Computed example of a mutant assay.
Amino acid sequence: MMMMLELFILMIFFTVTLSDTGSVITVNKVSVQQEKSIIIPCFYKAQYVNAPKYLCFGKIWGLCKNVMEINPEKVSISDDQTQHIFTVTIKNVTTSDSGLYWCSIEIHGFDKKKEFKLNVSKATPELYVDHQMVTGYEGGHIVISCHHSTMKPQKWCKIDGACVNTNGSINGTVVQLSSMDRGFRVTMSELTMASTGWYWCSAGDEQMPVHITVQKNPGRMSFVWLIILGLLLLLTLMAVIVFMQHKLKCVTFSVHQRHENMYVSMKKPNPQTKQNEGENDETQDYEIMSRPKQALKVQGWNHEDNKSLKKDGGHVHKDILKDPYCVC
């Protein structure tokens, strides 16, 4: 009776497992050299965005152990709820870390999960890349080298997306695979912001995840800012020129008015002056007009505060010197 109950529970477990294949998507098999780190992306459905995520280790799902609870310093998890991908980073791996892992989402009843196999070796891994995190620029291209020594079919895929075997495109990005010694190269051209995401190299059942980040082209941004700064500089220069021209016009007008008013004031007759000094007055008027600065000093003109003058009954008023359209 007990044996029948165990078989019944096992049957239910496998039924739920088979019907849950699309809830979480990740790589199948990954190889890494010891003392290195590995990042595993786990894609999940949008309905599980707020559910807790964890990594489980063990051959049997029901008996696996939460790695975060056993060794929290060994594993870190980051959840990108916008892209619906949580990434698991296993640090400083050793051969004892080899085995079956499960990308898991905690749900009341039956947790959602997807297994992957991790193989840690002392020698060179069967499939590896130079960098798992690669950055490119919008409109440019990037090259990823996938190293392997097998004759198995090779391809480049986006997680939960399309794959390319030789030449093709993924989300509008041109993809080309070319052979190289002990592996193949992936060239992604005409990058757009939509090219950002997780991909993987594949050689047979071996896979290696790679994250592509596409940024704005700094050269284009610098050119735009250069144009903006140039326009601002031009506008500033034009404003300075207009201001200087206006200031010069004000000064010229004021000096001209002062000379005219001074000349009128000096030409008025002085009843207290002797008749025989007429010739000297004409000579003095000529000298004053030819040397306006000395004339201003002789006649008591205060240049700083523009006070009114009184000379021989004549008056020079401050209001007369005002420019009708500017103030200096």
Rank of each mutant, 00 (worst) to 15 (best):
E126G: 05
T166E: 15
N71W: 01
E115H: 04
D79C: 00
I40C: 02
S195P: 08
Q154V: 13
M221F: 11
M11D: 10
K152D: 14
V175T: 09
T166K: 15
M180H: 12
L226F: 12
R185F: 11
K114T: 06
I90Q: 00
R220A: 10
D285T: 07
G109A: 05
L191F: 13
D319A: 13
C250V: 13
M1T: 09
N280D: 13
P271W: 08
L118H: 01
I105T: 03
H108Y: 11
Q272D: 15
S222T: 06
A194K: 15
H108V: 07
K74T: 00
T283F: 07
R258D: 08
Y101G: 02
L191N: 10
V327G: 10
T135L: 05
Q257T: 14
T135R: 10
Q132M: 12
G278A: 13
G183A: 14
N270S: 12
G230K: 09
Q257A: 15
M3H: 05
G314D: 14
I12E: 08
V255H: 14
C201M: 08
I241F: 14
K114E: 09
G22D: 10
G62F: 03
N171S: 15
H131N: 11
C56V: 01
C42Y: 04
A203D: 13
V174Y: 10
K53Q: 04
F223A: 15
T82Y: 02
M193Y: 10
D97G: 02
E35T: 11
I144S: 02
S78K: 12
T95Y: 01
G172T: 13
S23L: 05
E260F: 14
N306W: 07
V16P: 02
K158M: 14
P271N: 12
E69T: 03
S31H: 10
H315R: 09
L127D: 01
I25M: 01
G183V: 13
S254T: 15
S145L: 05
V49L: 04
L232N: 11
V255G: 09
L7R: 07
C328T: 03
T89M: 02
G230W: 05
P292K: 03
T196E: 08
S169R: 05
S308L: 06
Q294R: 13
S121D: 06
K274D: 12
V120Y: 02
F184P: 08
F14T: 07
